[in-house]
Design a binder for these strands. Sequence first.
DNA 1: TCATGAAGTGGTAAAATTTCCCAAAAAAGA
DNA 2: TCTTTTTTGGGAAATTTTACCACTTCATGA
Lengths: 148, 148
Amino acid sequence: MNGEYRNTIDEKGRLMIPPRLREQLGNVSELMLTKSTDNSLWLFTKADFQELDAAVNYGPLAMFNKHSRVLDLTVIAPAREAELDKAGRLSIPQVLREYAGLEPKTECVILGSRNHVEIISASAYDALMEEYRTQVGEAGNALSEQRM
Amino acid sequence: MNGEYRNTIDEKGRLMIPPRLREQLGNVSELMLTKSTDNSLWLFTKADFQELDAAVNYGPLAMFNKHSRVLDLTVIAPAREAELDKAGRLSIPQVLREYAGLEPKTECVILGSRNHVEIISASAYDALMEEYRTQVGEAGNALSEQRM
DNA sequence: TCATGAAGTGGTAAAATTTCCCAAAAAAGA
DNA sequence: TCTTTTTTGGGAAATTTTACCACTTCATGA
């Protein structure tokens, strides 16, 4: 999934997902919306989310595993079922809106990334990009060494 | 089970469990409420709790196994039967309230996680998240190595 | 024994929010 | 330009939340 788009949250807390991204999500109606790790939100198809959930919470005693618990409480547990209305809009529950700083009328960036859509306020996005652009070189070197 | 919600304990020590989570608990009336590992509480259906109990206390000699005993005494043994009233409210026994720092009028976070609901005071939650968010990268790496 | 009151339990009605849907407006494509 | 698709806004219905009230139980002391 790819593509960067911008849109504003309307007065009712809804965000329009561009048709291209809807299509890439498979025009599926069952979605999951959750917190990411950077004050942004991630939107998955339910199937993809469940795969992630299963990988994090593996086995009946996962709740006692520190690593599982960290990922579960930060990313998996906060997830909410979501779907797009007939006009392709996503309504974002209040807890998630607050986490991502998405008050009504906020401009935000909508990014297609691999198996999910990332939703982030424009201001948080700009700040994040400023930080990440300084790290691109380093990240690229480190990753390519790991893989070769 | 998924979803994050916030609510306050009422003057009588009761906490309203949001309809979405009630539904995910299967609208069952027989529940078990117990201590978790982080000054929070876990709410299970009786069936799921028994499953956990069985996983922790495996075999007739579990009581001699140090690990079983640790988990049993900290998490399984303190469990109390619980049920929700017609308005979906949970009354929390005093011992458990004290463990989790949940006095009346305390704001708390209610999280659906896998097969249970986690109940934690808002202040404890914020502290925990601050800690956990710094550990997400590490946890993700550790888990993905284990699983591959 | 009975009145009193505190603490817990159960319920209701109104207010606020969310969800769902429709239709007009705008944009895009032919 | 005309048709089709997309976007925006708003209204109505349904749900959820809040605030409040009534009742039971239990302990106390007159």
